[in-house]
Design a protein around this nucleic acid. Structure first.
Lengths: 248, 248
DNA sequence: ACCTGAACACCGTTCAAGT
DNA sequence: ACCTGAACACCGTTCAAGT
C-alpha cells in the first residue's frame, strides 16, 4: 500500500487576497507555541484559541496538522543565516554555518524532530539549499560532489544535535542536580569499569561544553574529510559494494 | 522551572518474580506495534488490547508512556551488532558498524525519532557504547578522543538517516510516482536554475542508491577525518573560541 | 500483588450549518 | 469565501474498587 504523496507545497493554495485569518499569521502563532512549549504541546485547539478562532477554522487554510507542521518547519529553515562566501575561506564559511545551524536547532528543538518526519521542500528550505550549493561550488566542489559535500555538513550537524536534545527534553534546560544524574549513569554502567574509569579520568566540565567539544571534534573530522575529497575527487570507501547491496 | 529528571533506569523496578504480565512481554509487544505501524500508532490502549489486558494494567509495570518508550528504545540499541574488532582494520570495523547501524535505523524508523527525545541509558545502550569504545581504543584513540571519535560516527549515521526517514514517512515505502514528485520539487525550485540544471545533469538513479551514495561519501569524510585525528591527536577547528562562547 | 472500569481532560478531523 | 459547533473516534493518566 503505497501512500499517495502530498505536501502543502504541491497543491494550489487558496486565494491569498481576502479577509479573515491569514496563513502566515497561523504559522507564526504555531511557531510561537512550538518555541514556548514544544512539539507535543501544539494542538489545533490551542492554536485556534491563540488566534481567537475555533480550532476547526484552521482547516480552511491547512489540510491537516501535518501541513501546518510542514509550514512551521519551513519557517525554521528561514531562520538560518548565511553561508555567504564573502572573502572567508571555505573552511571558515562551512564552520560558521555549522555553528549557526547548531545554535538554531538547539533554540528550536521541535524542528529537529520534524526534520525526521516531514520532507523539507518549502521555499526557505530550497533557498538555503541553493545558498549552500553556491558556497560549496565556490569552495571548489564540482558535479555530484557539490550536493554530497553540503549534505554531509547538514547531516553532521543534525546528528550531533539530536542526542543533545534528548537530554534537555528529559532533563529540563537548567542543570539542577546533574551530579546526581551522572552518578546514576555511572552506577548503571558499573559492568563496564573501563568506561567509568575513563569518565572519572577526564577533567570535569559542564554538559554544554562537553557537547560543544564533541561538536568541534566532529566538525574537524568532516572538514578534513571534505578537504581530502577536494584533493582527490573520486575515491570510494572501504566496502563500496555494500552501498549498492543495501537497497536494490 | 527545572523538571526533576527521571528515567525507567533510575528507579527501583518492581519484583520480577510474580504472576501475570511481565515487563519484557510488554516491551516486545510495543516494539512489534512500533515496527508494524510506527511511533504515532502506539497507544497504551492498543498495546493493552494486544496483550489481552486493560490499557491501565500497563501502569503497574511502567510509570508512563515515556518509560515504555525508553524501554523500547533500549530494545532497539540491543538490535545492533558488533563493532567487534577481530582482525579487520579499524576503518573496516567502523565502516561495517556504520552500515549496520544505518540499516537497523531504516528498519525501525521510530527509534530515530526517539533518540532525539529520550535519553539512552539502558543496559543495551551502555553495552553498545562499551563495545564501540573498545573498538576505538583498538584503533589507537586515547583519552577523550575515544569518546569523541566514536560519538562522531554514531552522530554521523543518525544525521544521515533522519532526512531519509522524512521522505519514506511522507512517501510510503515503495516509490510509486516518484518521477511526479521530482517534477514537483524541480518546479518548486524554478527560482534556482543552477540547482535544477545540476540535478538534470546527474545520471538518474533510484532514491535508495542516491542516499546510499551520499552515506558512502559522508562516511569517507568522517573516516578520513578520524584518521587525521589519529595522526595529530590535538588540534582545534577554525574558530575554536566559538564553542566556548555558545553556551556559558 | 496485580488487574479492572469508570472517569477526566484532552486530542485531530469531518461536516452540516451559518454568515 | 470564510467561520462555527456539535459530533466521532480517539488519546494518556488517575484512582477507587476489586481479586
Amino acid at each position: 500500500m503505497t501512500k499517495q504523496f502530498s505536501s502543502v507545497w504541491t497543491r494550489e493554495m487558496r486565494q491569498p487576497k481576502t479577509s479573515g485569518l491569514r496563513r502566515d499569521q497561523i504559522v507564526t502563532a504555531a511557531v510561537e507555541i512550538l518555541d514556548a512549549e514544544g512539539l507535543s504541546a501544539l494542538s489545533m485547539r490551542k492554536l485556534g484559541a491563540k488566534l481567537d478562532s475555533g480550532a476547526t477554522s484552521l482547516y480552511w487554510y491547512v489540510a491537516n496538522k501535518g501541513e501546518l507542521l510542514e509550514l512551521a518547519l519551513d519557517e525554521f529553515w528561514g531562520m538560518l543565516d548565511g553561508a555567504d562566501p564573502g572573502e572567508a575561506s571555505w573552511r571558515e564559511v562551512v564552520t560558521t554555518f555549522a555553528y549557526s545551524f547548531r545554535e538554531t536547532l538547539l533554540a528550536h528543538p521541535w524542528a529537529a524532530t520534524l526534520i525526521g518526519q516531514l520532507p523539507s521542500m518549502g521555499p526557505n528550505s530550497l533557498r538555503l539549499t541553493d545558498r549552500l550549493r553556491r558556497a560549496f561550488v565556490q569552495a571548489g566542489f564540482t558535479g555530484t560532489d557539490i550536493y554530497l559535500s553540503s549534505g554531509t555538513v547538514m547531516c553532521f550537524v543534525l546528528g550531533q544535535v539530536m542526542p543533545e536534545l534528548a537530554w534537555s527534553n528529559a532533563y529540563g534546560d537548567a542543570e539542577p542536580d546533574r551530579d546526581a544524574l551522572i552518578e546514576d549513569v555511572l552506577e548503571l554502567a558499573h559492568e563496564y569499569p573501563e568506561m567509568v574509569e575513563e569518565y572519572r579520568a577526564t577533567p570535569p566540565m559542564s554538559v554544554a561544553t562537553a557537547r560543544a567539544l564533541a561538536f568541534d571534534y566532529g566538525l574537524l573530522c568532516v572538514l578534513d574529510g571534505l578537504a581530502a575529497r577536494l584533493r582527490h575527487p573520486r575515491e570510494s570507501s572501504g566496502v563500496p559494494d555494500e552501498s549498492a547491496k543495501m537497497q536494490p
